[in-house]
Amino acid sequence: MQSLIRNYFTLFNLPEACELDQESLSAEYRRQQGEVHPDRFANAEEPEKLRAVQLSSYLNEAYETLKSPLRRAAYLLSLRDIDVEQVNQNDLSMDLLLEQIQLREKLDELPIDESALASLDALRSEVNVKLEKQEKKFAEFFDLENFNEAKKVYHELQFLYKLSAEIDAGEEIRLGY
């Protein structure tokens, strides 16, 4: 059985890079879950069952980390000993903050009823375009081993993902959940 401390990329036989083949990741994840999932040990002794829960949990965590572009970015930086939790004031540019405030104002100004749904979709597309752009930028800096700049882009990505979640929450409120 594999050791629990392993590089997530190695675990899934993938190159350690920003660009990632989602299909290969999913296929390899499913294959390995097929071996370690607790359902494979439904008739086994307790220690084996426990081991299966641990391995399967570890595999899930590794998969979720690599699957999400944001978490993958943080993980890649952590492999380079860069702590993304540590935010320096000058990491965040004034332009970025202004842009964030503008996007947030747009979201807050929408009426709280179904008439806002189209505008929410438009705002989501706008955020998605920015996300895509920033993800590319992150990959560029990371590949150039400019980790300081990569970290700054990571924080921008964090803002955008948070905003995107707030757009979703806004949509749910307007749909009357």
Partner: peptide
């Protein structure tokens, strides 16, 4: 909606 089993 996190896949289980899971440990965090």
């Amino acid at each position: 909606n996190t896949t289980i089993p899971v440990a965090k």
